[in-house]
Nucleic acid binder design. Structure first.
Length: 160
DNA sequence: GCCAACGTTGGC
DNA sequence: GCCAACGTTGGC
């Protein structure tokens, strides 16, 4: 019983972890820690599978947009920062016995030409993308296969 | 720095 | 369960 490959858009502030930071990371892989929103957590916990495609999005920065592709390379597991009293992501209501927050590991597949928000908004085929909807704040959103293909083929010129 | 939009908290 | 207050996100 296999499930079709799914696609996600994951936001990261470049000042925290840019796609260049991901490229320099050991095995070009980072734990996607710090998610403190239940909807985004549930996506990681319930829906993500190893091999899922990830659009790496730069947010809260001079040039917001999609900076490259990555891949989910682990199942969800407890986010260590929730137990670390010195971490800004510390959650005193969580415990190792009953962890509230999880993360997956994400591995770089390719840095790409940055697609700015203006370009994304100008493409009618992407009008339904969650990240482009008014008031959207979710740091992890599902991306459809059609949206993924539009981005790869139309903006980056490859078939993946 | 501004501010719209949204999620969470907590009193009732 | 309601909802006002508050905190955060994130583009501009």
């Amino acid at each position: 019983m296999t499930k079709a490959r799914q696609y996600w858009l994951m936001k990261s502030e470049p000042s925290e972890c840019s796609i260049d930071d991901l490229a320099r990371a050991k095995a070009q892989t980072v734990a996607w820690f710090g998610v403190r929103n239940y909807q985004a957590r549930n996506f990681m916990r319930d829906d993500m599978r190893i091999g899922d495609g990830v659009l790496f999005y730069h947010s809260s920065c001079p040039q917001p947009g999609i900076a490259g592709r990555a891949e989910v390379v682990s199942a969800a597991y407890p986010d260590a920062t929730q137990f670390d009293a010195k971490s800004p992501y510390y959650d005193p209501k969580s415990s190792p016995d009953n962890p509230r927050w999880v993360n997956v590991d994400v591995k770089l597949r390719a840095r790409e030409r940055l697609i700015g928000l203006d370009e994304l908004r100008a493409e009618p085929k992407l009008a339904t993308m969650r990240v482009l909807q008014r008031g959207n704040r979710l740091s992890i959103t599902p991306v459809t296969g059609a949206e993924w293909r539009t981005i790869c083929r139309q903006f980056w010129g490859h078939a993946d």
